[in-house]
Each structure stands twice: as structure tokens, then as C-alpha cells.
């Protein structure tokens, strides 16, 4: 079975993760621009970060036969530094129209400040003008209100909900997101976001239409195999295979494929891992011996 993890921060993951993801069937990933655990102080740091998303990280993923895409944006945490934010806004047009950039993201609210709203609006306009999907980060605190308010701002800015993926949903937010016509993504992330047993119940209740699961694996305790693990757990729980395939593969492909920058043929044509793309002397591809164990013994993410 093939998987598409539409939210994963590979810059902070090791090659072991790439190896395990490839072995577990992850064929494509989307890396949203986000902060890096601490605030940046220079616009140049953003530029180099964006460069790594369209450059070295893309290459790193290709060594494991994984197609790497990204979304480009100014995240809400760093939107609160207005001077920096303005400088980053000047960089964005250079990057949003690059090959393999499947959207503007992840943008949205953190503390729901005035400045966060200002840059959410400005970036929503960039997405509308570039005709790109938007990947939305919903806040950890005051999530329900923050999610509603995000959707209000986006509709007000002229966005088509069919081109917006609202991420980090939970049981409290999903209904309104779906009712208003947006895509609802769920991040399977231990402790702070959503566990995958809960995800099964959500799919039982809401079905698979416009629902996406992702890992948002980053520098914190998180799981780069969250998507395949959740799919496996869903199968065990008797969820229909078609629904599993939708939430873990074809829905994100449809949603972000609206950018025109991501097609199934991008990886269907690929002859798997290209041995010429490997560094001489390195044994990056040792196979996924530990993946079977990870997938079977540690399937539940809580």
C-alpha cells in the first residue's frame, strides 16, 4: 500500500526515518514551512530554510525513492515580529511559484494576535493570486475558536474552501471545518495532538470524504511512520480499505494536486531508488529490518 504524508518536517529528521518511511510504503511527502523550534532573527535565515526545502531536502528524500514537495509561508509564531515578517513577505513571491511547491503554508494562528491575522490575510491573497492551495496550522490553545476565526478570515480574503486544508483538527473542530467545505487534516502526534485510536472513531463518524491524516513529525517526540501505522490500525479495526486509502493517500493527492505541481505519475514512473543518487561508500539503504517491528509492536500512537 502507498502512503502520502502531507505534513512532515524532514529537515529535523534523520536518514533512519527516510529509510523506515520508504520501507513502510511512503512514496511522497509534503514539508510545510514552519518555525524551527526557536525564533529566527534574520530574514536571510528564512531564505536559506526555503532553499533547503526546494533543494537539499528534495535531494535527500530522492535518495530513498521518496518524492518531496513543500509548502512555503510565514508561520504564525514568527508573524509576531513585524519587521522580520515584512522582510519574509518580500521573499515569498520568489518561492511560491517554484516547481514542487504545492501550496502556501503552514500559515494560520498561534496566539491569535492582530499581527498573526494581518499576515494570514496577506498570505491568503498570495495563494489566491498564484492559484495555490493553502495549508493551515490551527492553534494549540483556544483551538476551536481559532479554527473558526481562521476560516472566517480565509473566506473574507476570497479563498475557495476546496483549496484549503485545515490541519491539526480534533473531535471538537472537525464538524465545522467539513460543514464549511474545507479539507480537514488530522495530525497523528503523540501526547500533544491526536492519537490514532481516536482517529479511527473520527473516520467511523465522519467517513473519509475530505479527511486527511498526517504525521507532522518534527524535532519533538513524534512519529514519521504515523500515517502507515494509523492505516494499519484502521485495517485492524475493520475500517473499509477504500476509506483508508483515501485518508492516507488519495485525498492529500487531490487536495494538493490542485497546485498542478504534484501528480501520481511523479512517483509511479519512478524506477524506485536510484543507486546512482547514493553517495559512494555510504550504505544509506540497509532495508527496513526494524520497520516490521515498529509497524506491528508500536502501532498505537497515544
Amino acid at each position: 500500500m502507498k502512503f502520502l504524508d502531507s505534513h512532515v518536517h524532514m529537515v529535523s529528521r534523520t536518514t533512519d526515518d527516510y529509510q523506515r518511511m520508504a520501507a513502510a510504503g511512503t512514496v511522497a511527502i509534503i514539508e510545510p514551512s514552519f518555525w524551527q523550534g526557536q525564533p529566527r532573527t534574520e530574514a536571510g535565515s528564512f531564505k536559506d530554510y526555503f532553499n533547503s526545502l526546494i533543494g537539499f531536502e528534495r535531494f535527500r528524500a530522492s535518495q530513498f525513492g521518496i518524492k518531496h514537495y513543500c509548502t512555503i509561508g510565514l508561520n504564525p509564531k514568527e508573524a509576531n515580529n513585524e519587521k522580520l515578517a515584512d522582510a519574509v513577505m518580500e521573499l515569498l513571491p520568489l518561492y511560491v511559484c517554484k516547481e514542487g511547491v504545492v501550496g502556501v503554508g503552514e500559515i494560520g494562528f498561534d496566539d491569535q494576535t492582530r499581527l498573526e491575522e494581518k499576515y494570514l490575510r496577506l498570505q491568503a491573497r498570495i495563494a489566491v493570486e498564484a492559484d495555490l492551495p493553502i495549508q493551515i496550522h490551527t492553534p494549540h490553545r483556544d483551538k476551536k475558536a481559532g479554527t473558526s476565526r481562521t476560516m472566517d478570515v480565509l473566506l473574507d480574503a476570497g479563498c475557495d474552501p476546496a483549496k484549503v486544508i485545515i490541519d491539526h483538527n480534533n473531535e471538537e473542530t472537525v464538524k465545522e471545518v467539513l460543514d464549511r467545505g474545507f479539507w480537514a487534516a488530522f495530525t497523528i502526534y503523540p501526547h500533544t495532538k491526536l492519537g490514532n485510536l481516536r482517529m479511527i472513531e473520527i473516520v467511523r463518524e465522519y467517513g473519509a470524504e475530505r479527511i486527511i491524516i498526517d504525521s507532522a513529525a518534527d524535532w519533538g517526540i513524534s512519529d514519521a511512520l504515523a500515517v502507515p501505522k494509523t492505516a494499519a490500525l484502521m485495517k485492524e479495526a475493520g475500517i473499509d480499505m477504500r476509506a483508508i486509502e483515501q485518508v492516507s493517500y488519495s485525498n492529500p493527492l487531490i487536495a494538493y494536486g490542485q497546485s498542478g505541481q504534484m501528480r501520481e505519475t511523479d512517483w509511479a514512473d519512478a524506477a524506485g531508488i536510484d543507486p546512482a543518487a547514493l553517495f559512494a561508500g555510504n550504505t544509506l539503504l540497509r532495508g527496513g529490518q526494524d520497520v516490521h517491528e515498529a509497524m506491528t509492536k508500536y502501532m498505537v500512537i497515544e
Partner: peptide
């Protein structure tokens, strides 16, 4: 060059 993606480079 300083903001180019792989294929652009």
C-alpha cells in the same frame, strides 16, 4: 542562483 531550486540550478 541564491534562491534557485534543483532544476533551476
Amino acid at each position: 542562483t541564491s534562491s534557485a531550486d534543483i532544476r533551476e540550478l
